[in-house]
Simulated scan of single mutants.
Amino acid sequence: MASSITRDAALALIEAARAAAHDIGIEVTIAVTDAAGHLKAFERADNAPFLTIDVAVDKAWTAASFGLATHVWNSILTDGKVAQLAHRPRMVSVGGGCPIVESGKVVGAIGISGGNALQDQQAAEIALRALGFEVTS
């Protein structure tokens, strides 16, 4: 059976991401998925716009799908051989989605939406580091 993030770890990531977003000064929605991209934990701040719900979930799904952070997809999609992937539903190529890597294996992903792309990415990376997960780019 493939490794996947535990419920407790997913909830701890939500808490760490909430704290990171607060420190950055943004109201966000946070989604944590398992290794297969299925939602494991979720939270939306009171003042986070409703569009952030789908964006956070899709950022996590995108990061889980190939084990790549969402911010790296912009440069990947410039390659004509894979550019068509940009038209896939749920594919997100802006910062804020990161794979959750433990012992070199993707066990899930986190997606954050509510700030700008860099702020969302920073909040995700801070949360991952706070819990001892690897941060990949």
Rank of each mutant, 00 (worst) to 15 (best):
V101D: 06
P49A: 06
D34N: 15
G96I: 03
A10D: 00
G108I: 03
L128Y: 01
K105W: 02
A45E: 03
A56F: 09
C98E: 12
C98W: 05
A130G: 02
G67S: 09
A109S: 01
S137E: 15
R90Y: 01
K81S: 02
S65N: 07
W73I: 05
C98M: 13
I5P: 04
H38V: 08
G80W: 09
N47K: 13
V92D: 05
Q122P: 06
E43A: 15
T29E: 03
L39A: 14
T6V: 10
Q122G: 00
I112R: 08
L39H: 12
G114P: 12
E15P: 00
G96H: 11
A48R: 11
K59C: 01
A19N: 13
A48F: 00
A63F: 00
A117T: 13
V82Y: 09
I110R: 02
H71W: 08
E43P: 02
C98V: 04
E125F: 07
G96C: 12
N47L: 01
Q122S: 06
L11I: 01
A56R: 06
G108T: 02
V107K: 13
G114V: 10
A16D: 05
V57E: 07
L85C: 08
A35W: 03
R44A: 07
L51G: 02
R18M: 12
F133G: 09
E102G: 05
T29A: 12
A17C: 03
S113E: 09
R44H: 14
S93M: 05
G132K: 07
A123N: 04
Q121K: 10
V94R: 08
R129G: 07
V28L: 09
H87E: 14
K81H: 07
T33N: 03
I76N: 10
R7D: 08
L68V: 13
T70H: 04
H22Y: 14
M1V: 13
D34R: 01
C98A: 15
P89Q: 09
K81E: 06
A10M: 13
A36C: 04
K40Y: 03
M91D: 12
A83I: 10
H38C: 11
R7P: 03
Q122D: 07
V55L: 09
A63L: 02
H22I: 14
K40P: 06
A48Y: 10
A45C: 14
V101S: 10
E15N: 09
A86Y: 01
H22E: 15
F66I: 08
S65P: 09
V107N: 12
L77E: 03
A45T: 11
T6Y: 02
Q119R: 14
E102F: 15
G80L: 14
K105G: 08
G115T: 10
T33D: 03
S75F: 11
V135W: 04
A56W: 02
G37D: 00
F50N: 11
D54Q: 12
T6I: 13
G37E: 00
A48L: 02
P99L: 07
V82C: 07
A31R: 01
V72H: 11
V101K: 01
G67R: 04
T29I: 01
K40I: 15
A21V: 06
A63C: 04
V57A: 13
L11A: 11
A21D: 03
W73N: 03
L13G: 03
I14Q: 05
G108S: 06
R18S: 15
W73P: 08
R129Y: 09
